[in-house]
Design a protein around this nucleic acid. Structure first.
Lengths: 222, 222
DNA sequence: CCAAAAGTGTTCATCCTACACCCATGC
DNA sequence: GCATGGGTGTAGGATGAACACTTTTGG
């Protein structure tokens, strides 16, 4: 355990804590919002389903720790991560007193490193049918979903999750998965375009229909 | 420094951190929202203005730590506290690597323990004219204010801060201080009463006007 | 031609804002 | 009676939900 050079008595006297980050990694597949879960590798509760997490290192911000964890498990970098909140009940982790900060991320299901994920025995679970989770990870996941809904309302979620170009139907389906209810196609379209964060391309796809739908992309500026 | 009995290697190997809470204590005085600040008592940066904070103890949740700090400085208990966020840049505290979680509270300026506060040399500062603050306390304060504005929008802030009975003008002035702009008296009145969290008493006060205004109080249920 | 998805337009209710107006009372 | 702040009513704009309608094209 590396020891930090602290010369100030008040700092020296204070208790030190294990601090972790836990990542709620959301993906989108089969028209459903999914969460990446892991069979826990260490005791206690080894083998039970868990969020991905890791201890925060000596000289590392929480954000960086969350990024490191996400990267180590999916190979993905430069994905936005959102701080959901800190969880600190002294008994929350049955192994030791650990303070954990939850981070949410939306990742593209088609671009992460499947090898890495398989190595860890991870699995995607639909948010509507989660298995039983260790500690307070269930609460974290629910809080993260709430956070995501607020985010989607205010600034359109999914920038990191969707492919570079996508149809309005695709992003609507994603939002339907986030809000867990159907959204009116016409109204959604108007709202989203009114936000002025998407731009239309001249490319059409006939994947979803005979008529074909135009691809859109996020504006560079934002 | 007490040592926690941890038998699990993964837990043992992890770095341990100083974890603190910092409290943004809002009060309302002279028709202005104010923040309680302290001349910092310890090195480094001793004497500079700072939020009230304290290290989190061995077996103590963050919420409890924040309550303890608030109590120790104002004598107030049973005040709602809101988690604003975690601040973790490795260099944020020039004394040592400290992870801090910010909590906001709204306290009644007429009921805290003035002796205690005077003892620490604390002072109320209007949010619009804060002195220079140590570390990232300025950022914390701004974030807390943003949090407060969202809160006031959704559920009417000030339950802990206002006297038991207050006029609609009083709570409007408070919200004007929170949002830092004038609010239409008629519209505010309708919105607030529509929220259905206040009940009218039969008591009038002529303190603010010749006609007199009715006192209201928060409903018990919520 | 028709089914089905993409995309547009219209209506209605709701909410917020601005502002005009009435009420009660001390001076 | 009139100035002052408390309290009510109303008209206009913005937003969002519900839903009808038009467009395109593969089969």
């Amino acid at each position: 355990m590396p020891v930090q050079p602290v010369a100030i008595p008040e700092y020296l006297r204070a208790d030190r804590h294990l601090v972790a980050v836990d990542c709620i990694i959301f993906g989108y597949q089969d028209e459903d919002l999914q969460v990446l879960l892991f069979p826990r590798e260490i005791q206690p509760e080894a083998g039970k389903w868990s969020l991905v997490g890791g201890f925060v290192r000596e000289k590392e911000s929480l954000d960086l720790a969350a990024r490191r964890v996400l990267d180590s498990i999916t190979g993905l970098t430069s994905i936005r991560m959102y701080q959901v909140g800190a969880y600190s009940d002294p008994g929350r982790d049955s192994g030791a007193r650990v303070i954990s900060v939850a981070f949410a991320a939306l990742v593209p299901v088609d671009r992460y490193d499947r090898e890495l994920v398989r190595e860890h025995g991870a699995r995607w679970w639909p948010v509507s049918h989660l298995p039983s989770l260790i500690f307070d990870h269930r609460q974290m996941t629910e809080d993260a979903l709430g956070f995501l809904q607020k985010l989607a309302d205010s600034e359109l979620a999914g920038r990191d999750l969707l492919p570079d170009r996508f149809t309005l139907v695709q992003i609507r389906k994603l939002h339907e998965a986030i809000f867990r209810r159907p959204l009116d196609p016409g109204n959604f379209r108007k709202k989203v375009l009114g936000m002025n964060v998407l731009e239309k391309t001249q490319v059409k796809t006939t994947a979803g229909s005979k008529k074909g739908a135009f691809f859109y992309q996020f504006r560079k500026g934002k």
